Simulated assay, not measured.
Amino acid sequence: MKRREFITLIGGATVAASSGARAQDRVRHVGMLMGYAQSDPDTQARMTAFRQAFDRLGWKDAHNVQITYRFGGGEIDRVRGYAKELVYSKPDVIVCETTPSLKAVADQTTTIPIVFISVSDPVSNGFVADLARPGGNITGFTNFEETMGGKWIELLKRIAPESARVGVIFNPDTAPGGGSFFLRSVAASAPALEAEVLPFPVRSDDEIERAVTELGREPGGGLIVMLDVSMAVHRPAIIAQAAANRVPAVFPWRFGATDGGLVSYGVDVADLHWRAAAYVDRILKGTKPADLPVQQPTKFELVINLKTAKALGIEVSPTLLATADEIIE
């Protein structure tokens, strides 16, 4: 081989290797559309869980990955705007928290990989074909099965046995199935518990006040707050009205009890964010979302607020207290 040919060959190989290294080392882009407000302490805890897990997998924000956060705050128009913005930026993966966030992003792209968190019914909503084989560009982590509604009403009757008229409060624009997803199992469990179920579709603090006031007009009223991003955003109003009208309320999120509600039973959502980091890692390394099965929750939390129970004149049984993961005194 002539000297000039040898130099050309070595030079070409060096350029190719350098180009490959640059491609491999390029900063990856992950978009995250969070369902709740940035100022919410639980939002911060979930983001921390994701970042810590992602960091352990070797992804350092602002070094080899750029994470762009957007916060829907339970407002549909804002969520849709942020979805368009994130898709337009063409990230490598988009992480969506809550059903409305996932729908907004899924309406914008069928090609960018999506990992969802806290979505109740991804199959019926058409996001995935099957939990085991999701197909398409979407996979992720569910939060509750529809049977959870039955567990909420059972919990309400255990902590406040006199609850005969059980209101179920939700926003029909944002709740899973427009409210029907969990309402079915609440209604199915009610007859055996000698309870009447009263659906309360609401969209504002004023409507929340009217609904809870109606429940509190006579003894025997109880409240189930449906898993719904809008209800999470409006929880200060729900908690305040439940206290003012002396209505015992069951919440699906830990922060429902820690913020002053009577009791909560639900998924440890921070754990879902921790687990989601592994899916994002695998997708960034080449795995297709279609090959990652949708996973269900494995950690649940029961939180009882004894301060609220005492204010309502409720004596919580020692048996129920013994099963609680956290007791607020």
Rank of each mutant, 00 (worst) to 15 (best):
K2G: 11
R3Q: 11
R3K: 14
R3N: 10
R4D: 06
R4P: 08
T14K: 08
S18A: 11
S19W: 15
S19R: 12
A21M: 13
D25F: 15
R26D: 06
V27M: 15
H29W: 12
H29R: 15
M34G: 06
G35W: 03
Y36H: 14
Q38L: 11
P41D: 07
P41N: 09
D42A: 14
D42K: 15
T43D: 04
M47D: 08
F50N: 02
R51L: 14
Q52G: 12
Q52I: 14
A53E: 05
D61Y: 12
A62H: 15
A62W: 13
H63T: 14
N64G: 09
I67K: 02
T68G: 10
Y69M: 10
G72R: 02
G73P: 01
E75L: 14
I76D: 06
Y82R: 08
A83L: 04
E85W: 14
Y88E: 10
V95Y: 00
E97I: 13
T99V: 11
S101E: 08
K103D: 08
V105F: 03
D107V: 12
D107L: 11
T109Q: 03
I114S: 01
F116H: 01
I117E: 03
I117M: 10
S118M: 07
D121Q: 14
G126P: 03
F127G: 01
L131R: 07
R133S: 10
P134K: 03
P134Y: 03
P134W: 02
I138P: 02
M148A: 11
G150S: 11
G150M: 07
W152V: 06
L155H: 09
K157Q: 10
P161Q: 11
P161G: 10
S163W: 07
A164R: 15
R165M: 06
V168R: 01
I169N: 02
I169Q: 01
I169M: 04
N171I: 02
D173S: 14
A175N: 01
P176C: 04
G179A: 07
S180C: 09
F181K: 05
L183V: 10
A187M: 13
A188G: 08
A190I: 01
A192I: 08
E196W: 12
L198V: 09
P201K: 03
R210D: 06
T213G: 13
T213F: 12
R217E: 08
G220S: 08
M226P: 01
D228Q: 00
M231E: 04
H234C: 08
R235M: 09
P236T: 09
I238F: 02
A240R: 15
A240Y: 12
Q241G: 07
N245C: 11
R246T: 10
A249K: 00
R254D: 05
G256I: 04
G256P: 00
G256V: 06
T258F: 09
T258C: 10
T258R: 13
G260Q: 02
L262P: 00
V263T: 07
V263P: 01
S264R: 05
G266K: 00
H273Q: 07
R275H: 11
R275D: 03
R275I: 05
Y279S: 09
V280A: 02
L284C: 04
P289E: 01
V294Y: 02
V294S: 01
Q296H: 12
T298G: 11
K299M: 09
F300Q: 08
A311R: 15
G313E: 04
G313H: 04
A322G: 15
T323S: 14
A324F: 03
